[in-house]
Amino acid sequence: MEKENKAFKIFRVIITLIAIVFLLLFVSGALWGIVNIGNLVGGLLCVWLIFVFGTRNKYKSLKEKLKKNIFGKIVLYGINFCFTALLCYGLIVTGLMTFACIQQPKQNATAIVLGAQVTENGPSMMLTGRINSAVRYLQENPDAKAVLTGGQGSNEPMSEAQAMYNCIVEAGISPDRLYIEDKAVNTGENIAFSEEIIKANGLNENKAIVTDGFHQLRAQIITKQQGLSGSVGSVNADTFPIFIPTFAVREWFALPNQVLFR
């Protein structure tokens, strides 16, 4: 029994430390100006884990107080059920997202580079990561072409596709390997409009989706929903580590919406 108690204590410490690290990452994302359902829900999940596993005595004390009446029991079991279900769901989806990231594209597949925000100072940090990965892929696959896809938002000085084109050409990639698609406003349109360019220009129908790792699973689901021809592989962007937890948790909510309603 003593060994089990010791093992459980070690388990609690590990879970608590992991939750603290992720909570700091969620908060750091917010300090960088990234605030969405990802760091809001992710932060609450971490706080719950820290309270349940890291402050065991306080949790037990509160648990006993809540269990004294039916309303308290409903609150206690309801909160624990919701966070436990969210954690289990999140772990499963994160596993699927990780699997999507390791799907290698076929050699010289046509790259579809998904856009991200362009600021007054140029490509955002996220878009820069995608541009850098696209350049590496095109250097490693000299016969590959790329479709750069992304329209111009109301707060952007130029289209995302044009910003990518400028940076990729500046990096030494020949312009005749690049095709601009500057009308798309979401991932579904990115992929659909890029497919039209691929077919119209007789490009390789095997595809290499260039985007952040957390986004690869949803992009691959969209390609299947649209019934596109050819294989689909992943070219993962150089994502700033602080952003990964926030956007990964956001994908937990975007994915069922994509599967059920689109």
Rank of each mutant, 00 (worst) to 15 (best):
E4F: 14
Y179R: 03
S174K: 13
F22R: 04
Y179N: 07
V259P: 01
E195T: 10
S61K: 15
T119G: 09
G213D: 05
G78C: 12
G29W: 00
A30E: 05
K9G: 13
R56T: 15
I14D: 04
Q258S: 11
D212W: 02
F22M: 14
T246W: 00
N121I: 06
I14N: 05
E2G: 07
Y179K: 00
E120L: 09
V35P: 04
G153Q: 10
V75L: 15
T246M: 04
H215F: 09
G29D: 01
V210H: 00
I221H: 05
G72Y: 04
R250N: 05
G72H: 06
D212N: 15
G54V: 07
Y137A: 02
L114H: 05
S159E: 06
S124H: 06
I191D: 02
R218T: 08
N108G: 13
S174A: 15
N5S: 12
R130I: 10
L203Y: 02
T239M: 06
K199S: 11
T110D: 06
Y137V: 00
F53Y: 14
N206I: 03
A134P: 03
I37E: 14
L44D: 01
A134K: 00
W32K: 15
V41M: 10
I10Y: 12
V147S: 05
A163I: 10
V210F: 05
A161G: 13
E181L: 07
F247P: 00
F214A: 08
Q226S: 07
N257V: 14
A85S: 12
G95F: 09
I191H: 04
S229M: 08
